[in-house]
Amino acid sequence: MRLIVSYISGLIFGIGISISGMANPAKVLNFFDVAGTWDPSLIFVMGGALMVTFVGYRFVLHRPAPTFEETFKLPASNELDLPLIGGSAVFGIGWGIAGFCPGGALPALGTGRSEVIIFTIALVSGIFAAKGLQRLSATKAASV
């Protein structure tokens, strides 16, 4: 049952991404290109997703626990630290260069397009590189 609802959640997400335009780099980049070929569509994607989730979460998180787990797994930290801001800044630079973000690219893998595959391989390499750096700095901090 857990796997079925996981699959269905992913499927709805993937259909949403597909029809919204988030999987289309030309559309994503045009959203940010206010000074050029501006296409404001993506404000409707984020706006729609955010409003629906905001209302839905009010009800869901009001319950004592999710259906198939004992607790909600929510990030506990409230700290606005350097990794959060620096990492997000670097993410934006990469997004602005490539035009794909992870949420756009993962569903787009289903189209089998080589550009998506190249982006995703680079994305996974970046994730592993960053995890390696994090481990390295954790070991350093522990040995000091």
């Binding site: 857990r2 997400f13 997703a49 989730t53 869901v60």
Partner: peptide, 19 residues
Amino acid sequence: SLSGGVLIGVASILLMATL
């Protein structure tokens, strides 16, 4: 784009509600 966004929201709610 709005309907795509709504679906993204529905998926987010479903995953939070179940898992």
